[in-house]
Design a protein around this nucleic acid. Sequence first.
RNA 1: GGGCGGUUAGCUCAGUUGGUAGAGCGCAACAUUGACGUUGUUGAUGUCAGAGGUUCGAAUCCUCUACCGCCCACCA
Length: 732
Amino acid sequence: MDKLLKPYNSQDTEDRIYASWEQGGFFNPDVCIQKGYTASDADYFSIVLPPPNVTGTLHMGHAAMLAIEDIAVRYNRMCGKRTLWLPGTDHAAIATQSKVETILYKEEGKRRHDLGREELLKRVEKFAQDSHDTIVNQVRKMGSSIDWSREAFTLDEKRNLAVRTAFKKMFDDGLIYRGYRIVNWDPKGQTTISDDEIVYKESKTTLYTFRYSKDFPIAISTTRPETKVGDTGVAVNPSDERYKHLIGKEYDITFAGVPIHVKIVADEAADPAFGTGAVGVTPAHSQIDWQIAQRHKLPIVPVINEYAKMADSTGTLAGKKVTDARIEIVEWLKKEDLLEKEEDVAHNIATAERTGATVEPLPKLQWFINVNKEFTLPYSNITGIASGSVTTLKELMRAVINNGQIKIIPDRFEKIYFQWVDNLRDWCISRQIWYGHRIPVWYKGEEIFCGMEAPTGEGWVQDEDTLDTWFSSGLWTFSTLGWPDMNSADLKNFHPTSLMETGYDIIFFWVARMVLMTTYLLGEIPFKTVYLHGLVRDAKGQKMSKSLGNLIDPLEMIKKYGADATRMSLIIGTGPGNDMKLSEDKVRGYKNFANKIWNATRFVLENVKDCDYSQKPILTEGDEKAIAEFEITLKDVTADIDNYRYYLAGEKLYHYFWHTFADVYIEQSKSRLSADKNSTDHISVQWTLLYILENCIRALHPFIPFVTEELWAMLPTHNKKMLIVESWPVVR
RNA sequence: GGGCGGUUAGCUCAGUUGGUAGAGCGCAACAUUGACGUUGUUGAUGUCAGAGGUUCGAAUCCUCUACCGCCCACCA
């Protein structure tokens, strides 16, 4: 009790409280049942933590995620549910490997091939382990009531079993296939990437209009003249009168010293209104051109290689950087008087999300997931898709949102989700990096084998590639619960998960992929509700970044102001789907709030020493009214939490406690407390003070768990059960 | 090009089914040996982006416009 005399000190409190929660086993739903805190037949509430990448440390966005999820978890635990929050981390394949490669090059001047697969993997694993340890510590510091006994990693053995099982099933169903086609190639990362891993950057460039040769009848336009040495066709619209007579004609040309053969074809893809209405077709360097080439059986001539240099087939240009080749070709065009027009245009350049390199479209043999292929779904718990019916992955992804089984908050993101699904092409899942789940496919000559283990017999070689990291994270909500063991107790008890709380920036990367994998593999939804939070920005609304120097480190805030204050500052003032602004002042403000609760409690405890709380006395009319007013707030707050309006719930509690309970009720209680001790008024005010305080502390607990837990132990109103497993206050 | 969101007090934002505007911070004045100065009390400030419409009544619903931000596609 002596410590109440000083201001609240979060540093002396938080670690100690967290340790006693952990020792009590309260984070583990099984222990809660064993110890009688939760009824074994109670309803369940489960969240699987979006696994942070093991690429370093947590930032404020993670802190916000942890705060929101912990509120949901603590609230539901207090409501008596069997509550599971399952932690884990993500190996984040490309992100982690490229980070380690950068360090390797900086510190030792070495590249991945200097070390070899095994040695590089050792380095990456060491780095990942260190990051993991840092992250786990940070998650604890935030006060997350998360079940560490169930911790998972997207690249551990159990998840690897899940990945191989999923891959094999999709392979056997013909949904995973190997195909030679144009993929997004990252020349810096030396790997393919998916469409979603591309970031478009706007820049100015020149659009050149020219002819291949003096004799060629049509002028074409391009922003990439160097790729034109790989042209094998010119496409015109079949309805275009200007060029009708030329369709089918073929030309042999020496273009910038490189012999090319070009056929004029009719294709709807050519827009008569754009440029000259004719498209130079470079099958090896453009998705659309590739498709045109397929339709007209045009040959494919490589132009650019894996190192973003001109390919061997480009004659005198071979081995040159694309930018140099471009200059050379433009000069040649000018010299030959073939260039008809140069104009500045705004253009989007495709860059790789992780490495920043300019992405080159290249034809490659890769593994894909077919999102449009029909298959039979043996079991389905999806409304509108019967067990045993024929469907597609795209259809499944649409169905569960359409039929309302999954609710996205805020709902405007449902539209964005559908837009993505509609535009979705086959998902390229193979990556030419070493850190990740190895593709479970083996080759022997022409033979291909896909299985859980290597095939028996001599001469089988496993595919060198690994899987896109989102393949394994797509399985996260059920691979962490024991799948593919269908008898797993966790899977039965906690799936589908209740809530998926994550950033809106990964709705496509992750949320959609989880839906794809879960509906396909389990015939189930992965989660009932998706709550999307926004980005944490600085006080001016700028993105936080190292280069801007406006990063706010969660650990530093926790150290200075406490985890409680940090959590409150990340909750209040921001609804779902909106970016949140954060400043140190805001965090400081909520530190004051923790202290306010602390001091209000001190005042109450000092003045109710002789109160018999177990016996509710007859209350004055005013006190009954005060309690009723509190209960209105409580009801409101409960409804807000039930409807995922955590920001409103937190603000209402804050406001009620400070400006109603402390400023009004406690203030007016002062004169009453100094009156006759045995008067009914005195007894009434004492009891009411304790009653409202106790229930405020309960209600505040999910938001500011540490200070409330600390104060709870000092209240004379209860037996010695910890607040974390106490019940949420109910309106009488 | 397609779509989404925003525009409310100096700043950050609430405003959950339409009933003539709220909170925090900031600002100003006052109070204070009193649970807390990490405090309290009082106060000022808004043609709710603009225009039109529906309605007895609109910040709230509809249409259009402007500006800001974001997402998707990517046209050679």
